[in-house]
Design a protein around this nucleic acid. Structure first.
Length: 350
DNA sequence: AAGGCGGGGCC
DNA sequence: GGCCCAGCCTT
């Protein structure tokens, strides 16, 4: 057995957690439930949910029998509700595929919805003592620090390396103790912030500690550069009204009424004729506007245009709307509302 | 205010 | 096969 595994197992017996509600059982259902709840959610938050859930659904068959709404009601507040849906769907699949007995083969476990490679390994190790490596956030942190592995753990290359390492470190015996050790060690000692390196039984062999890199590992995800996008927004005036266009139901501003847009390079006269059904005359450029989204910043170059001729199809098109100026109360994006307010101010006498 | 977190869905 | 998302929690 590697020194790493040996030290961890010894540490677990002395300092690990031994009284969590899902410990001391080999009931795969209870272990499965705990592993699903522990995805994305910390132990302290999970415990009351776990106990309430088990009280209502003490076994897999009772869960499979229940309506989904009741499952989700007990999940309410835990977040990531797809976990609850998948749990319920998986319970029904276990009834169908395995006659109600939670599967023992890792291939069958991982085939259930909501269970990936790491969760399947954890269930198999705790319920059946299987010789399978886990690799969750705690384990990634412990391994990257102890073995000095740089690169974002979410990146394919790093993750592949970590899986290989995790498997190579597996002890031949006491896999369940070792697996629990990795989890507890990562959660209570080798923590993300303020790890307790002074009390660490693995400190003498920790690469991060030796190179003063503990705070820099694991490598954080690369900051996404905020994309910059530019668009022209067309303010098409016609008899005191402004042309609005309904956006597609999905994506940015899905289903909202917005101003027609065009690339900066587009030939506007041609575009308006063929796409919007009107002849236009350029009136003026309006001051540029910036609008920030989560993933990018939009630079808006508004252009004021006067409609000189309107083809009849415009009034029949469902996605086009010649809106009165007071349409500002309609479902309009904030950036567009701001733009239209500027226009109103600009046109105000004086 | 930002980033972490397993797995699924989408391209 | 890479990218994004979900919802709550910690820092």
């Amino acid at each position: 057995m590697s020194d790493f595994a040996q030290h961890l197992i010894r540490w677990q017996k002395a300092h690990g957690r031994h009284n969590l509600p899902w410990q001391g059982t080999r009931d795969a259902y209870r272990i499965w439930l705990s592993e699903i709840m522990l995805q994305q959610t910390q132990v302290g938050t999970v415990i009351p949910y776990y106990l309430r859930f088990l009280e209502r659904f003490p076994n897999l068959a009772r869960l499979a029998d229940a309506p989904l709404d009741e499952v989700l009601a007990l999940w309410s507040g835990l977040g990531y509700y797809s976990r609850g849906r998948n749990l319920h769907a998986a319970a029904r699949l276990v009834m169908e595929r395995h006659g109600g007995a939670f599967p023992e083969y890792i291939e069958d476990i991982i085939a259930l919805p909501g269970i990936g490679r790491s969760t399947a390994a954890a269930i198999a190790a705790f319920a059946y003592g299987a010789h399978c490596a886990i690799l969750d956030g705690n384990v990634k942190r412990v391994l990257t620090r102890h073995f000095g592995i740089a690169g974002h753990p979410g990146a394919k290359k790093t993750e592949t390396e970590l899986w290989l390492l995790a498997e190579s470190l597996l002890p031949a015996h006491q896999v369940n103790t070792y697996t629990q050790a990795l989890m507890d060690f990562g959660a209570t000692l080798c923590t993300r912030a303020k790890p307790r390196c002074a009390s660490c039984p693995l400190g003498s062999s920790c690469v991060a500690l030796a190179t003063d890199s503990v705070a820099r590992l694991p490598t954080s995800r690369p900051k996404k550069i905020t994309l910059q996008k530019t668009t022209r927004m067309l303010i098409l005036r016609h008899a005191g009204e402004i042309l609005l266009e309904k956006r597609p139901p999905t994506g940015i501003w899905g289903g909202l009424w917005s101003l027609p847009e065009a690339d900066m390079e587009t030939d506007l006269a041609h575009h308006c004729r063929t796409h919007l059904g009107m002849e236009v005359a350029t009136a003026a450029n309006l001051p540029a506007l910036r609008h920030s989204f989560t993933h990018f910043r939009l630079h808006i170059a508004p252009l004021l245009l006067d409609v000189t001729r309107l083809f009849p199809r415009v009034e029949q098109a469902e996605q086009l709307w010649l809106a009165p100026r007071d349409a500002l109360s309609a479902a309009i994006p904030a950036a567009v509302r701001k733009l239209l307010q500027q226009l109103v101010a600009l046109e105000a006498p004086g």
